[in-house]
Design a protein around this nucleic acid. Sequence first.
DNA 1: TTTTTTTAATTAACGGTGTTAATTATATTT
DNA 2: AAATATAATTAACACCGTTAATTAAAAAAA
Lengths: 211, 211
Amino acid sequence: MGRKEKNEQQREDIRQMILKEAKNLFLKDGYEATSMRKVAQEVGISPTTIYLYYKDKNDMAYALHKEGFKMLGKQFMVLQSVENAFERLKAMGRIYLQFALENPDFYELMFIMKEPIEFLERQDKCEWEEGEQAFNSLLNTVADCKKEGFFKDMDDRIVALNIWALVHGLCSLKLQGHLDHVAAAHLGEDMQRDVLDDAYNGLILMINKLR
Amino acid sequence: MGRKEKNEQQREDIRQMILKEAKNLFLKDGYEATSMRKVAQEVGISPTTIYLYYKDKNDMAYALHKEGFKMLGKQFMVLQSVENAFERLKAMGRIYLQFALENPDFYELMFIMKEPIEFLERQDKCEWEEGEQAFNSLLNTVADCKKEGFFKDMDDRIVALNIWALVHGLCSLKLQGHLDHVAAAHLGEDMQRDVLDDAYNGLILMINKLR
DNA sequence: TTTTTTTAATTAACGGTGTTAATTATATTT
DNA sequence: AAATATAATTAACACCGTTAATTAAAAAAA
């Protein structure tokens, strides 16, 4: 009985070793440049051996995607100590933005690229645990804000969705380079130093008016 | 003198022919599956001949990207007949959303993928004409809305940026599949039929409260 | 302990990809 | 008609993800 479990553990260890090297390469060169062959070489195994532990590259992409959510979750931990709901909401957005800027490759894998979700759906797993959990945190915070007088007569879920979409939209446009191009054309020299921050502050201002 | 121009014209014709077949394949199979070799075969030329007319695949991606903006621009034409500024803003968002849903591959090339912008920047062209022009339309409409009492005490550019980010965020999350996953988990059966529409209507409602 | 069986890992190979260098065919100019 | 410039092609490089066939290692049975 202990035999089988030991084997399972060993198998999981190798899976983890592969993931570790994949993560290193991913952080250094990005997703596209992280090939199965390179990961294998880094681990010190044959390229095809990876396929004994990960179904395909999308499987690995999903593993990294989960890794990213672990990292973001850690950053979100500090929110537990923020009593005031609106302050918590604001901090949440700031942390999200900061995470995207500091870990652009992870952010892409978590919220932009199709590969990880494609893998999920090929496994017939409708649930997307990581995302649903994160959205739930936002949803709860929005609900708490409502008790403080914000978002009157509005559906929590719709509000949460729109806030997520807005902040994600800013991240997406920023990482893609669009934000900077438009800023260079339409905003003064003084502003484009940090359009993202200015935009987010504008959002906070707008929400404040929504009381 | 006319010789040179005739040659230029002929060259442009071939460029266009290549683009046409690339567009067909792109619409059918998406960007990744549209290889230089396949495009060449469709045109009836050698794969390497394409490189005499397009610097690389990113160059072709940018050409398709521009094609997409032409299409979106056509859709935006009807906005000229909308007198009321806020109605125009609302319609603009609806058209944008609809375009993204009906032309997901083009939308990705225009607003999500890095390749076209990477090409732009490699050519040392800071300006991103297509996007800047579209953003300008939005900016003007926001300014007009201001005259009608919306967005008081707010920077037009920041408001426009946030609106773009929100609508783009919705499109991005939808096309990536995230929206549906979260909707399935958090929204009732009745709602997920069209989360996108519900979210957009929510946005309009919010803006209405911002007067 | 030796043989058989199962499992793990490897090598070889397929069918692709974007792209560059060297070569041939086609116009253009002298 | 010969020399030159331009256009297009073939050959080749260095990769990629992935599958099938083969070998090495470990576990179970004799």
